[in-house]
């Protein structure tokens, strides 16, 4: 069975390339919105029954060659009973004021299973908006994890439609802010039919004057009996000036459902920190350890161990204020 997607095995020299690809991942580069060696918009069609083993990594970068506002599209269609894993990485390479908008369409047909891991790591003057338009047919399942590591302004807009029975959607998000960064996650998720489940966990660690906004609405239609929908947004504030706004919403029109939502805002737990210190763990380490533990609930949703380890190490470096680069690579994209 042939897959129909564009792949550039050899990018010309001088072009960007990731030097430390994950094992078993195929890489595709998009530079300033143009797909290297292929046509735009980037389109992946996974044929019916095709089970993709290797992860497809889309690396979308912006550099000084084009600093104009940019709008790009990516399209993913998973045919019946197909499966695949996608890693989307978004980076800026220069300190220019980038404005980027990505529209990503994800269609999961009956019984399809997909995972999307999204890494957002951009400079402070970059503003990035994503619009994910997602629909799941009967028995389809989607697991999605956003890691918003760094960026001037990152806004993720997700619209998820559960259109077929027994659909399952997991959304995870971790966002880290410092300086004057703003991270926004808007989720509109609708259960149209009975017996679907959805689960959302968005967590943020906010330092300096960082701002986070979470808006999440789960709508359960009148016909969508036996729906299971959970939504949580938790924030840790590290500094006095960081702010988090959270608005979880449930709109339920069916009467036989299991739904919950919640939102918290807190500081690091001083009791936990004292406990760790009495065991000889220095205060700074104890604080990092606690933040890593907080992040773990989201990171553990990344099913690839290698990717999870890498993300964990990126998050840890970020929290320690070190450069965000992958081991053995000097580029600061990750």
């Amino acid at each position: 069975m042939e897959e129909n997607f564009i792949y550039a095995p050899s990018v010309t020299s001088g072009e960007f390339r990731c030097r430390v690809p994950l094992k078993g991942a195929r890489q595709q580069f998009i530079v300033n919105g143009s797909v290297q060696g292929g046509a735009s918009p980037f389109t992946l069609e996974v044929p019916e029954g095709c089970l993709r083993d290797e992860m497809l990594q889309l690396i979308s970068v912006r550099n000084a060659d084009n600093t104009a506002p940019l709008s790009t599209r990516q399209i993913y269609r998973f045919g019946k009973h197909s499966s695949g894993r996608i890693l989307q990485c978004f980076h800026t390479f220069t300190m220019d004021s980038f404005e980027t908008e990505d529209r990503v369409e994800i269609r999961l047909e009956e019984g399809a299973a997909a995972e999307f891991f999204i890494l957002q790591n951009e400079h402070n003057k970059a503003s990035h908006r994503t619009f994910y338009d997602i629909s799941l047919a009967r028995d389809a399942s989607l697991n999605m994890v956003f890691v918003s590591l760094h960026g001037g302004r990152i806004e993720n807009n997700l619209k998820v439609d559960l259109c077929g029975e027994h659909g399952s959607c997991d959304l995870g998000g971790l966002y880290l802010t410092d300086g004057k960064q703003t991270m926004i996650n808007n989720v509109e998720l609708e259960h149209y039919v009975p017996e679907c489940r959805s689960n959302q966990v968005f967590k943020g660690i906010l330092d300096d004057e960082g701002v986070a906004r979470f808006y999440g609405r789960v709508k359960v239609d009148r016909d969508a009996q036996k729906t299971e929908a959970m939504q949580a947004n938790h924030n840790i504030i590290i500094s006095d000036k960081a702010r988090a706004y959270s608005k979880p919403q449930l709109e339920i029109y069916a009467d036989d459902v299991k739904c919950s939502h919640g939102s918290t805002l807190g500081r690091l737990d001083e009791e936990e920190i004292f406990y760790m210190r009495t065991r000889g763990i220095p205060e700074g380490e104890a604080r990092i350890m606690q933040q890593m533990a907080f992040a773990w609930e989201v990171l553990q949703r990344i099913s690839s161990e290698e990717l999870r380890d890498r993300m964990q190490s990126l998050v840890e470096k970020r929290l320690r204020g070190e450069f965000n680069n992958c081991r053995n690579c000097s580029k600061n994209c990750c």
């Binding site: 009791e271 936990e272 406990y275 350890m289 606690q290 890593m292 533990a293 992040a295 609930e297």
Partner: peptide, 8 residues
């Protein structure tokens, strides 16, 4: 009262 540290 030993402290619980979820995630560690």
């Amino acid at each position: 009262y030993p402290i619980e540290i979820p995630g560690v």
